[in-house]
Design a protein around this nucleic acid. Structure first.
Lengths: 103, 103
DNA sequence: TAACCAGGTTTCCATGAGGTAACCCAATTC
DNA sequence: GAATTGGGTTACCTCATGGAAACCTGGTTA
């Protein structure tokens, strides 16, 4: 049950993608810049998974060359408070010097 | 930043362990029963990581044979609303037939 | 004296997710 | 006609992670 639900945000960089989209729509290459270590392969995989899961929407705008925008769905936006809560705990732990991660 | 904070709940079954501890202290072998597919190795790894991160506390009770209880710290309990939020979204997606996971 | 318990630890192995880098396509600009 | 741009896809490799199963330790009971 929990396992199943956690699958919504599973996969490398998935939470980051959701997080970057919280401010509004973003294009493929913008996301690559927002999340520097992500590769095109993984970003595209993650975006299609998240789209398939109904968390993200893909819009193709008929410009030339066509540009593609990704944005959170309403349901996707419901994940933001969850990520927020995790970030808060993360900060507290960091303040205590626990949580020894790099970036 | 987010990446760093997400590390708090990283590793297989980590969210499940936290989730199982939400009702109160639990012993090693109880957790193995609560989360059937977890192996002793992974459970013990996860418990020590979570303890190190300050999310879980380990109590050895001087019985014979000594029993060990694990319980959420105050900080650990702050993760519960986050997991809750994710579960809620998971349920909505499931109701829509998206999210094709097994268990 | 042998077996049993809790609470792990150790060894070994396979797998699959992620990283790198090269490539693709069509339209546009130089 | 060559290069660029956006938005990817493909092929290949690697290495960390998790699973399985055996083992350990010290006290207890049969």
């Amino acid at each position: 049950m929990l396992t199943e639900c956690m699958a919504v945000i599973a996969g490398a960089w998935a939470p980051n993608v959701i997080w970057c989209l919280r401010m509004g729509p973003r294009r493929f290459n913008e996301l690559r810049i927002d999340i520097p270590p992500i590769s095109a392969k993984v970003l595209s995989t993650r975006l299609s998974e998240l789209t398939e899961r109904g968390v993200v929407q893909r819009h193709v705008r008929d410009t030339s060359p066509p540009s593609v925008e990704y944005e959170l769905t309403e349901l996707g936006r419901e994940l933001l408070p969850a990520l927020d809560a995790i970030v808060k705990v993360g900060h507290k732990l960091k303040a205590r010097g626990q949580l020894g991660v790099n970036n």
